[in-house]
Computed example of a mutant assay.
Amino acid sequence: MNDQNLNPLHPVRRPFDPAYAADEPGAATHPFPPVTGAEDKTALLIPQGPVPTPDDYTPRRIPHIGHALAFVVNTGVILVLTQAVFLALAPPMRNPHTGAHMIPTTLDPKMLLASMAIAYVVTLIEAWTFFPLLWHKSFAEGIRWDFATARRNAYRLIPLGLVLGWTVQAISSLIPMPKTIPMDRFFHTASDVWLVTAFGTLLAPMFEEICFRGFLLPAFAIAYDWLSLPRKPYAHEIWRTTVTFSRAGFVFSGILTSIFFAMVHAEQLDRAWVALFVLFCVSLVLTWVRVKTQSVACSTLVHACYNLSVFISLFIATGGYRHLERMTR
Rank of each mutant, 00 (worst) to 15 (best):
L124K: 09
L164G: 02
F212A: 05
A38C: 12
Y57V: 04
G49A: 08
H323M: 10
W194H: 03
I316Y: 12
H97K: 13
L314M: 15
I255Q: 10
H303A: 02
I65D: 07
Q294W: 09
G66Q: 02
L87F: 05
G37D: 13
I181V: 15
I175F: 09
A190E: 15
F245S: 04
H303N: 06
R329I: 10
I210G: 05
N7S: 14
F16P: 00
R326P: 00
T318W: 07
N5F: 12
R60Y: 03
L286G: 02
E39R: 14
T197I: 00
A275Q: 09
D55F: 15
L314Q: 11
P178M: 07
L256H: 07
F186A: 04
T82E: 12
A140G: 04
R60F: 02
F139M: 04
T58A: 08
L216F: 11
E24A: 07
P91F: 13
W145T: 01
A275L: 10
H101Y: 07
H64Q: 11
I181A: 12
K292N: 11
M327H: 01
P182A: 02
A114P: 04
R152V: 03
L160K: 09
A221W: 04
T197C: 07
K292I: 00
I312H: 04
L45T: 13
R271N: 13
L6V: 01
P50T: 11
F207N: 13
L157M: 09
V282M: 09
A275N: 05
F311I: 07
Y120N: 11
F199Y: 14
A266Y: 03
T42N: 14
